[in-house]
Write a protein that binds this DNA or RNA. Structure first.
Lengths: 210, 210
DNA sequence: GTATTATCCGAGCAATTGCTCGTATTTGGA
DNA sequence: TCCAAATACGAGCAATTGCTCGGATAATAC
């Protein structure tokens, strides 16, 4: 029950080509293991084996297995945030429908490819000490959405953004739970739900003003 | 990497009062551990210690730690399903808004009290072999909602129910992630989102018919 | 009472897991 | 070519964990 928080920061930066290859192999093997067996089967020995390297090499770059998960999360979040920002790029005067669809698709790319991996990482995130840093990126995503909503006259945009993000995530999770989800149709329904929610929100405050 | 699926079924039914007390203590201790430390800190020794019993006693009722999680999930799902059905009881002629609110609140009671526990159990569920049985109960919940929606002229009610359940879950998860969620306000927003989505769905098929 | 059954106990074994450290190999520059 | 720095290796220790088993204790039946 020792609560000595495990070290999380990467141990050293790779400086030669082969070492970055090693790091990549570690992360890739980790992804495969999480996909196949979930967090339960995720341990450093297994990762090293799967990556075709030795434990010793692994620990040269990651001081703990939590550090591996953390790095995976970092990269994933970064990709997500970048995707969302790219989806908003130069869209200021575009139709709302179009922008939302782009945002939804950007968000979906992350989960859709490997839902089991996404789930495992998500739970790891909530259990990890670094929780804080991750929450910050998560908030950055929410805030990007919030800024967009604010421009579109959505009341209480911060709260609305939070809800929209949650709603979309939830629908994806549920859809991927029963496998064989039609991504295109799913995206359409998510957009529909978002539009419906925003309409309700706008309507509500409009009604209050009278 | 041995993939011998762990035994999951309860080992024996308690027949005396003290043994049911033991079982309850085990489940309660498990809940406390999951809440405090998540799945990572969940192991049989810890559970027995926390429950104030011995490992031996624990294994008299649960053949594996997975069995404990499974039983927790079973009870929780049962409670959820019962709550949803109760929420629909005798509401056939009630206002749609009212019914939805009742459903949402029933669903929320489960997650709200202990979000971290709910999260842990949820992940355990996805990783557990019993996955199947749980999915069935999950589907039962969705189907209850689907029947309700079908009565209310919602097109593709099965799909819609799936979406509505996912949407609600997602909004809850997101809200509880940032702590200090106002349950009442959250329930209101979820109902709003549901109404919005249903309106969109109805509108869409109405448009198609022209 | 005694016999039988149910329950409980906890030392401790076998397996797993996180991780270190001394050594071997490779790389890139001089 | 030679050397220092970077990288890789993997045996194996210490700790944790899942779980068993033989025997003690409590409840119930007779």
């Amino acid at each position: 029950m020792g609560s000595v928080e495990p070290t999380i920061e990467p141990r050293k930066k790779p400086r030669q080509a082969r070492s970055t290859a090693t790091v990549d192999a570690i992360l890739e093997a980790s992804a495969r293991i999480l996909t196949a067996e979930g967090l339960a089967g995720f341990n450093t020995n297994a990762v090293a084996l799967r990556a075709g390297i030795s434990v010793g090499s692994l620990y040269q770059y990651f001081p703990s297995k939590e550090a591996i998960l953390t790095e995976m999360l970092r990269r994933k979040r970064k990709k997500l945030l970048a995707g969302m920002i790219a989806a908003l790029e130069g869209m200021e005067r575009q139709d709302e429908e179009v922008i939302i669809k782009r945002l939804v698709k950007a968000a979906m790319g992350n989960q859709a490819r490997a839902p089991k991996l996404a789930q495992a990482l998500d739970y790891a995130n909530s259990a990890l000490p670094l929780h804080e840093e991750m929450m910050r990126t998560n908030r950055a995503v929410v805030e990007a959405v919030a800024r967009f909503l604010a421009l579109r006259a959505v009341p209480d945009s911060k709260q609305a953004a939070q809800d929209v993000v949650g709603l979309a995530r939830g629908m994806m999770l549920q859809a991927f739970r029963e496998d064989a989800a039609d991504e295109e149709a799913l995206a359409r329904r998510i957009c529909l739900a978002i539009r419906g929610y925003l309409t309700e929100l706008r309507g509500e405050t409009a009604a209050e003003r009278t």
